[in-house]
């Protein structure tokens, strides 16, 4: 009698959730926040500050005169891929003075997308060096601002001096479909890399 109608408000079984992480890197103004935002189901949680006089002389705005804000801490978005699987996209801190956060970013990540702005390719060198040093699989996405690809992709590859095996794709960070394809390319490449490094020792997945 006393227990009639009483139901403990507990779930039948504690659901196990899994999360994964992909890093989105690139120089100042390369479109990282736009890239994350185009596919994220939440408004990217960003710590953006209005760029003020304080950043004059520190952040080079010559090539992106219309950019009024810059990411001063990492920003990230969330993509629910399944009931129990959430993918997080982490944009790297835009300025090199935030390098200390990068270890947290790359640890356990599937891989990275380096967004390259052909107006300032040199900005991509630092993230590329970092990922190569850490052995994190990465691909390069050449962000085609306004839909125009300014340079031949082969020229970009040569300018970045990255290996032929590393995928170099053009993408429009504003387009969800383009971002999605870039991410797919990245995960595929990461899996290839994983198999190339460990494939011999690993058992084949069943099925």
């Amino acid at each position: 009698m006393d227990s009639v109608g009483f139901k403990a408000p507990r779930q039948a079984a504690p659901q196990t959730m899994t999360s994964a992480k992909i890093v989105v890197a690139g120089g100042f103004g390369a479109g990282k926040t736009t890239f994350v935002g185009s596919v994220s189901e939440i408004v990217p949680l960003t710590t953006e500050a209005m760029m003020t006089d304080a950043s004059t002389g520190i952040d080079d705005t010559a090539a992106t005169p219309n950019k009024s804000t810059t990411t001063v801490a990492m920003d990230f978005g969330r993509v629910s891929l399944d009931e129990d699987l959430i993918l997080y996209l982490f944009g790297t801190p835009g300025q090199e003075r935030f390098w200390f956060m990068w270890d947290d970013l790359v640890r356990g990540a599937i891989g990275a997308v380096v967004l390259a702005d052909t107006r300032r390719l040199a900005d991509s060198f630092a993230p590329i060096d970092f990922f190569e040093d850490r052995g994190l699989p990465y691909i390069v996405g050449v962000n085609t601002f306004d839909g125009v690809l300014q340079h031949d992709l082969n020229d970009v590859r040569e300018a970045l001096s990255i290996d032929e095996s590393i995928p170099l794709v053009r993408c429009d960070a504003r387009q969800r479909e383009s971002t999605k394809q870039t991410l797919i390319t990245m995960v595929e490449y990461a899996m290839q890399q994983w198999l190339a490094v460990r494939g011999a020792a690993a058992p084949k997945p069943v099925g």
Partner: peptide, 11 residues
């Protein structure tokens, strides 16, 4: 690796 597979199909 399994996680990557799941992420890929999810994407």
């Amino acid at each position: 690796f399994m996680l990557m597979e799941r992420v890929l199909s999810g994407l």
